[in-house]
Design a binder for these strands. Structure first.
Lengths: 143, 143
DNA sequence: CAGTATCCAGCTAGATACTG
DNA sequence: CAGTATCTAGCTGGATACTG
């Protein structure tokens, strides 16, 4: 069945668009970065536990304590993903019990720097967004 | 029951951390931006249908055609959210049938500009990430 | 300490059908 | 044309229990 119908063309366009998105670098980056814990881990490793100061390695338990909301499952899963992507390095020291530290790689550090651009936008513009949101909701309220 | 036990302190820390995240501007921005269709609509309205050239208003059907993968539900839902946040403006022209155009606001445009920073990072570094990922997977394969 | 394994509730987003 | 309404499958992520 060749795709000559309108529905067929739409389906075809969708498949092609999906294929385009699958190779789009920006989209891949967003998929990695838009994870809740990814950015928080990046920030923790990139700015230290107090969110100011330089990047420094941190232990699993230290991260776990700092990101108080994270489950073990998600922390491990996220760290593994970041390691796989070359953004974070994992170092095991065979003490008893074992010591594991995580640290941003050069690549991870450069991504962290880039993310700070977003942070700056958020800090200077999110109040506007929030104001607009509140205004919009108030208008809807009094209908 | 006061939180004096270790488990209680952990639970307390988690609640406080959640509260912190709830007011963190960066987090709020990420929550908005990390939606699949948000960035694509921002890009469409900000760079035109051919992804090069300046921002320009687009009609609902035009967006629908350009973002071939989007469902009507998600397109409408996303546009409404962007409008609520003051990033996109919606204009209805009472022709027959009705014509609706969407356009980036100044705020939306400034966010779009910021997002291009991420795009640039993706274009120059995602190949490294992908290479690391492939390398990692190959190593796991031959275990 | 630093994980792994399993189960499942909740939310999201797609498909589908209908409308001013 | 530009939506709204509804249903549901599938995935995500949290809770929980166990381990080298």
């Amino acid at each position: 069945m060749s795709t000559t119908s309108a529905a067929g063309k739409r389906a075809q366009a969708k498949i092609e668009y999906d294929a385009f998105l699958a190779v789009c670098p920006s989209r891949k980056l967003l998929e990695r970065v838009s994870d809740k814990w990814v950015t928080l881990i990046l920030a923790a490793l990139g700015s230290g536990p107090d969110c100011q100061g330089g990047p420094r390695p941190m232990r699993y338990s230290e991260l776990s304590r700092l990101l108080a909301g994270v489950s073990q499952k998600m922390l491990t899963q996220t760290l593994r993903a970041l390691e796989r992507d070359g953004l974070v390095s994992r170092t095991v020291t065979p003490t008893v019990p074992v010591t594991v530290t995580y640290e941003l790689t050069a690549l991870g550090l450069s991504l962290h720097e880039t993310m700070r651009t977003l942070k700056r936008w958020a800090e200077s513009h999110m109040d506007q967004v929030l104001a607009s949101r509140a205004h919009h909701d108030r208008a809807a309220q009094s209908e």
